[in-house]
């Protein structure tokens, strides 16, 4: 429990630091103060991809009979929920950034389209998780869908990438502060990456524990779970 609290404290400290650094960034010529979004938006997107990667890895580990543990299922589920959360935040911060800089809330850019498709795929994953079923059947089904998503995401990405480049050949990368980023921006963004990753890991651990407790509750009735919680509290 203590290590989880330390992790949580680190996440909160780095997140606070990211906001402090990010809000302190100077206004740029091209984007004015909107360029401060660089401290938030890319780290959120990165974390979303990490979360879905972890879901896929945990699903595959569950599918392999030798490594099949209920914990992998719980981790896959927790990570997918967080992935949806971070993808949602990525799309929201992205459109808030896009509106003043590109002039539109949404554009059919390759990366945006792939991200939106990814969100829908994992919403489907979560939808099927909420169907009442036996724990083992649900875990198996989720693992199959979670593992199949590994195939879906890259091929969607590839298709959409071709679509946009073939069609308009316009790169939005030049509009983003990427190539000519100076030191302060890089520092804020890197801290953002650390903060979001730590927050993700922290929430993942907590959510996994909750899901496992939920499963236990389902399996062994209330009394057993209460007894375990009491033992844990006494041990501290």
């Amino acid at each position: 429990m203590r290590s989880i609290r330390v992790l949580g404290a680190l996440a909160v400290v780095t997140l606070t630091g990211t906001f402090a650094l990010g809000l302190g960034l100077p206004a740029t010529f091209e984007q004015r103060t909107y360029s401060r979004m660089v401290a938030l938006h890319p780290p959120l997107a990165w974390t979303a991809y990490v979360a879905f990667g972890i879901t896929a890895a945990a699903s595959i580990l569950y599918l392999i009979p030798r490594t099949r543990r209920p914990r992998w299922d719980a981790i896959a589920s927790a990570s997918a929920e967080l992935g949806v959360l971070f993808t949602g935040l990525t799309l929201i911060t992205g459109s808030l950034w896009g509106r003043p800089t590109w002039g539109v809330w949404w554009t059919w850019d390759a990366r945006l389209t792939t991200t939106a498709l990814m969100l829908v795929i994992y919403l489907g994953y979560l939808a099927q998780r909420s169907i009442a079923d036996t724990a083992s059947a649900r875990a198996m089904r989720s693992a199959i869908i979670g593992a199949m998503a590994v195939v879906v995401v890259p091929i969607n990405h590839m298709a959409v990438e071709w679509w946009r480049t073939l069609h308009q050949g316009r790169s939005l990368a030049s509009l983003k502060p990427g190539s000519t980023l100076d030191g302060d921006f890089i520092a804020a963004m890197l801290l953002g990456f650390v903060a979001m990753t730590l927050s993700y890991v922290w929430l993942l651990v907590l959510r996994t524990k909750v899901i496992e407790a939920d499963n236990e509750l389902e399996a062994h009735a209330l009394t057993a779970a209460i007894a375990a919680r009491r033992r844990e509290a006494v041990a501290q």
Binding site: L117, Q128, I131, D133, I144, I145, N156, A159
Partner: peptide, 25 residues
Amino acid sequence: VAAGLRVGTTLLPLLLLPVLAPVLL
């Protein structure tokens, strides 16, 4: 995957259509 679930008929389009997106494209 969706067959045999009571809500399979509503679940299948949600699972399948994003997967078929590259083929449509």
